[in-house]
């Protein structure tokens, strides 16, 4: 019920966002274009038709899809990690995936001119970073969750340091600004091809995590308790970590580092729909998609020049988080 409402809200905002942009569009044009597209009503003037098709399919739609995908991906991985680590202050980057992916992207930019190589390097290093965290977590016996988090801190610190090495050695006139701008997080470089490639694995991973709400509820009672209720904690944990890593890496591939979404949205969602992960996971995906879409609209329209959306999410997110914390204890203690 609430999920249906959120889904409809997302659709409405997505349609509305298509009207927004530097090129002013009348609602009547929008309407006649899409009714021609779907219902075969009378087309517009061919020249106008081509212009609108270009605006919608090449510029606005990829960007809207990118914002929704990234928002949903970061939120759902944040929510699942909070249940997995039994800690409401955990964010998707806790296992070092964002540090690894940023390093991978920078590494790719310095050593290869091919965009595809940069994307592959981002994905590969994201998984390497999480792999290192998981291995460190396994070395010693003991509380596996604490060791896993420490492993993530170590792995994240390592790749952050390596990123500095890359920045230091990069060409300061050409490569360095590209890396820095990329890491600010922006959706301005999104193109249709990247979105089409990334959309399918993202959606699969988002749906996969959303389906594991029941298991994640139980897992948040602790590993041993979960096992006595018939949940194999390590299996679920592996699946969730794999999906969340994939999602985080894909968001970096599309838009660089976009911070705070994966921490704030789970809290807001928990305030709206409650802590039950069966509802919370899909709700946080939808709310995350709505949030990033709106913030991206603001980021590209508010000023005469566009501000990177990563900066906007942080600037909006931080004060918002302070406000949320006031009520957050209702959701957890």
């Amino acid at each position: 019920m609430r999920l249906t409402f959120l889904f409809l809200l997302l659709c409405i905002i997505a349609c509305f966002s298509m009207l927004l942009g530097k090129y002013p569009l009348a609602f009547s044009d929008f309407w006649s274009f899409w009714s021609w597209k779907f219902f075969g009503t009378e087309p517009l003037h061919p020249q106008k038709q081509a212009l609108l098709a270009n605006i919608f399919f090449e510029i606005r739609l990829p960007r809207i899809l990118a914002a929704m995908l990234i928002g949903a991906a970061l939120s759902v991985s944040g929510t699942s990690y909070q249940a997995l680590f039994i800690n409401p202050l955990v964010s998707p980057g806790v296992l070092g995936v964002l540090a690894g992916a940023s390093f991978g992207a920078a590494f790719g930019m310095v050593f290869s001119p091919h965009w595809l190589a940069v994307q592959c390097s981002t994905l590969v290093f994201a998984f390497i970073a999480v792999g290192i965290a998981v291995c460190i977590g396994r070395i010693y016996r003991g509380s596996s969750i604490v060791l896993l988090v420490l492993g993530g801190i170590i792995s994240g610190a390592f790749f952050t340091a390596m990123l500095s090495v890359i920045k230091y050695t990069a060409d300061p006139y050409d490569q360095l600004p590209a890396i820095v701008y990329w890491l600010m997080g922006s959706l301005s470089a999104v193109d249709r091809f990247t979105i089409l490639v990334v959309a399918i694995p993202s959606l699969v991973a988002i749906v996969a995590i959303s389906c594991m709400g029941r298991q994640l509820n139980i897992l948040s009672m602790g590993d041993e308790e979960a096992q006595t209720m018939g949940v194999q904690a390590h299996v679920i944990r592996r699946i969730v970590i794999f999906c969340a890593t994939l999602l985080s890496a894909l968001t970096v591939m599309i838009g660089g580092m976009i911070g705070w979404v994966g921490l704030i949205i789970p809290h807001i969602s928990r305030m709206i729909v409650g802590p039950n992960n069966q509802v919370l996971l899909p709700a946080s995906a939808l709310i995350g998609a709505i949030y990033l879409l709106v913030v991206d609209d603001v980021a590209r329209l508010l000023f005469s020049y566009e501000i990177p959306v990563g900066i906007a999410t942080s600037l909006i997110g931080i004060p918002f988080f302070v406000l949320v914390l006031k009520n957050a204890h209702r959701g957890w203690q």
Partner: peptide, 21 residues
Amino acid sequence: CRQLAKYVAYVPQMHREAFAY
């Protein structure tokens, strides 16, 4: 572990939960 869970249940010490289910 699923089969076993149908035979035997664990009742842990009352604990505080991180999330308000």
